[in-house]
Design a protein around this nucleic acid. Structure first.
Lengths: 210, 210
DNA sequence: TAATAGGCCGTAATAAACTGA
DNA sequence: ATCAGTTTATTACGGCCTATT
């Protein structure tokens, strides 16, 4: 058990075949019976690499150091770069390239994080919005009721009657839906909250994409 | 004016130097006086490519065809792939790789689009939320006023007085801030809308990232 | 059951466009 | 306006996973 599923062959660098090869476009019409399936288990003599390029991959220890430096500073001044390159026994250019790629990776990763954070924030906002909408509705109803009662009471006062029994006012009144308050707020019923995985504000929810 | 800032040299493929080179880790301590600034305009004999590999880049026409096929189908069956490769005079492997990379690009692009759409949707939602919050506040005020008036009126009725003059009720009443309505809604004052480039719902707005 | 073709992912490396001194 | 260093877009490779044979 446990096994070692990840057999990074860092160590077994079979520094073998080297391939001169022009590359330019590779595979011009000059080909006779292309090898078909290449890389038949641990291929050795077969190139199959199209460019002739061979192994790559920095050793874990190298990556560790690079990663550490990166966490300290996302950029490198050339002198730092050269020193690091010496430490790692790498071409300074490789170090530079590594940093470039790392910055790019960092950026896209950041985007993904931002996206999911934004997504949940938006979900919360939408729910809040919904809650507020219903609250507004309820308040309007209450207000309408209150206004009705007020009217009723003042009528009673006008008529000089003394009955104090507050007759139950119909809960749903048309009144304020017809005539909005003179205030500066209006109510537009555009979109609403839908169950799960649906469309809100023109965004297809849940399923990341395609 | 105008000039031709983009001088893609697709045509002038100087199929020149070829570099054997093992690559393995590149640049062991074997280096004497590294060339420093490389590529002094149209370098020719200098390699500078660390791996020794030379040009790459498919010709525009090739990209065009690939792109067209991609728009028809994001995947390729092997027979289609081989045919396409023949048409383009490329190694089938290159075609396969191109499609993989294209799919990856497609995906991340999609993410970016989704992100900006989501972002504006969220902005709208937040603004709406704000509007609703102030609306709720106003409604509560109104309601409080109405309730006060009701109380006043019924008191007057109880006292048997007939004065109808509606004395101006203080606009801000403590009442409903102290005792929330028995309804099922509550009001939590968490975050609010800030000017531009700020923090809303824990998301730093505006500046994409770092 | 092992070999295999193809997909995705992560990443190295290149090229080109851009930027600042 | 040259040149180093940077960003963005590309090409390619290697590992890992899965369905197929």
């Amino acid at each position: 058990m446990n096994g070692n599923p990840v057999v990074v062959d860092d160590e077994l660098d079979l520094i073998s075949e080297l391939f001169p090869d022009i590359y330019t476009q590779l595979a011009p019409p000059s080909q006779e019976a292309k090898p078909k399936r290449r890389r038949r288990r641990r291929n050795r003599g077969e190139q199959c690499t199209i460019t002739g390029l061979k192994k790559r991959k920095l050793r874990q220890e190298q990556v560790n150091l690079l990663e550490q430096r990166f966490s300290e500073e996302h950029k490198l001044e050339s002198d730092r770069k050269d020193k690091l390159a010496a430490e790692l026994e790498l071409d300074p250019r490789q170090v530079a390239v590594w940093f470039q790629n790392r910055r790019a990776r960092f950026k896209s990763k950041k985007l993904e994080e931002e996206y999911s954070r934004l997504k949940s924030a938006h979900e919360h906002a939408v729910i809040e919005k919904c809650r507020l909408e219903t609250e507004v509705l309820k308040l309007k109803e209450r207000l309408a009721d209150a206004e009705n009662e007020k009217r009723r009471l003042s009528e009673r006062l006008d008529n000089g009657l003394g009955g104090v029994s507050n007759s139950p006012v119909s809960s749903v009144t048309m009144m304020d839906q017809q005539t909005p308050w003179p205030g500066d707020f209006r109510y537009d019923d555009d979109m609403f909250f839908l169950e799960s995985g649906c469309i809100i504000d023109g965004i297809q929810w849940v399923g990341p994409f395609m």
